[in-house]
């Protein structure tokens, strides 16, 4: 607990202490500007969308990696961790190169009227890239532990593959899926390096809240930076608490496993 307090709580407490010195009215004045609110909405919205995408595709990838054999499986399995190891700035620049109007994918998408680089869509793609390992890695051990007898029992009782997936497999996976989702979401909210390169960072359109914090810091506006940080912390903490509650509810429904 001491380690947890030193590593996690002390930095968080110092942020809160700084913002207390601001006074409520001044704090509100900083936060309630259209530019700050737009950046907060973008940060949380893009992270939510990316975490949802990661939840779906991460489940698919984890399932395939555990249950199927195919050539190159070990290589693919190892590749899943790379977004963690790759410096986020490198990831951001690589994705921008790929999705820029003259990039490999951007060149294909722009004629279709889809702009990815320098738009919120690009932010979502960067966050999908960064968050995928969280979902895959939390689900893999749980899928490995799944009781195949239950699936076979469901099948012999006449359940279709879809029914056994929805009624037998998913209830066991929900808690881990929620954890992975929460981790990917949290990482997306705080992500900076990979996003700023692909986002274009236009105020009100594609400027994320962490970037706004850095901008304020560069202008020596520590009060402004802290105020935005505190709002992000409070929203994140409330969301995490909600997801944790949902998770313990899913655990209880699954028979206290």
């Amino acid at each position: 607990m001491l380690y947890l307090s030193l590593v996690v709580l002390v930095p968080l407490a110092s942020i809160f202490l700084r913002s207390v010195g601001l006074g409520w009215a001044h704090f509100w004045e900083i936060v309630a500007t259209p530019r700050v609110l737009a950046s907060l909405r973008l940060s949380f919205g893009a992270s939510l969308l990316a975490a949802l995408l990661n939840g779906g595709f991460g489940l698919l990838v984890a399932w395939v990696l555990v249950r199927y054999r195919f050539p190159g499986k070990r290589l693919v399995d190892a590749m899943v961790d790379l977004p963690f190891a790759l410096p986020t700035a490198v990831a951001g620049i690589a994705l921008t190169t790929l999705y820029a109007p003259n990039g490999w994918l951007g060149g294909l998408l722009v004629p279709l009227g889809v702009k990815v680089a320098y738009t919120p869509l690009g932010i979502v793609i960067a966050l999908v890239f960064i968050g995928l390992p969280f979902v895959v890695r939390t689900l893999q051990p749980v899928i490995e532990e799944l009781d195949r007898d239950a699936e076979q029992a469901a099948a012999t009782l006449g359940a279709s593959p879809w029914q056994s997936f929805a009624r037998v497999i998913m209830p066991a996976l929900w808690p881990a899926l929620l954890t992975g989702f929460a981790l990917a979401f949290a990482r997306g909210v705080g992500e900076y390096g990979s996003v700023i390169f692909i986002a274009g960072n236009r105020p009100m359109k594609s400027e994320i809240a962490p970037l706004l914090i850095v901008t304020r810091l560069e202008q020596y506006d520590y009060a402004g930076a802290t105020a935005i940080a505190v709002v992000m912390l409070i929203i994140s903490f409330a969301l995490m608490l909600m997801i944790n509650t949902l998770q313990s509810w899913a655990l209880r429904r699954h028979g206290g496993a």
């Binding site: 693919v76 590749m79 790379l82 790759l86 012999t156 593959p161």
Partner: peptide, 30 residues
């Protein structure tokens, strides 16, 4: 017969879908 994991088309769709997603989102940037 249903007790086995989906073979053939279902298997192809699942593995193919996962690999396509990984190739697009992980492979290409790398």
């Amino acid at each position: 017969r249903r007790a086995r994991p989906p073979a053939g088309l279902g298997r192809f769709a699942l593995v193919g879908g996962a690999l396509l997603f990984l190739a697009l989102f992980l492979g290409l940037p790398l």
